[in-house]
Amino acid sequence: MSASPEMLWLLVVIIGLVTYALRLSFIAAAGSVELPLVVRRALRFVPVAVLSAMIAPALVHLEASMQLNWDSPRLLAGLVAIVIAWRTGSMLATIAGGMVALWVLQALFA
């Protein structure tokens, strides 16, 4: 982490203000403004796109030889977690199962 504590606090306060402004936006506008259709259509895909874009690079690396590291413990543990999340829908089970899978695989690969 390279940022100074002061900058970190400033970042948190600014993001907090932005988030509050987003939550207040239409409430403050007193219902006199309509949300554009294109925005409503786009926002539907934000969670899925953001989450997937965060997850994938943490599991798979593209190496200089343009090869994917299919055998990494993190990728396999991630796949285990995806199955657990799909079958149970439980956040705790997903985290616990994924961590245990990672530790076991790291021990096996080491």
Partner: peptide, 29 residues
């Protein structure tokens, strides 16, 4: 990462959102 997986999996509820997840993930890599 596991937290994000626990959030993503239930959010993929039709074919299109699955495809969006795949495209976004591949692009990110």
């Amino acid at each position: 990462v596991l937290t994000f997986i626990a959030l993503l999996v239930p959010a993929v509820r039709d074919r299109l959102s699955g495809e969006v997840a795949l495209v976004a993930g591949l692009t990110a890599v």
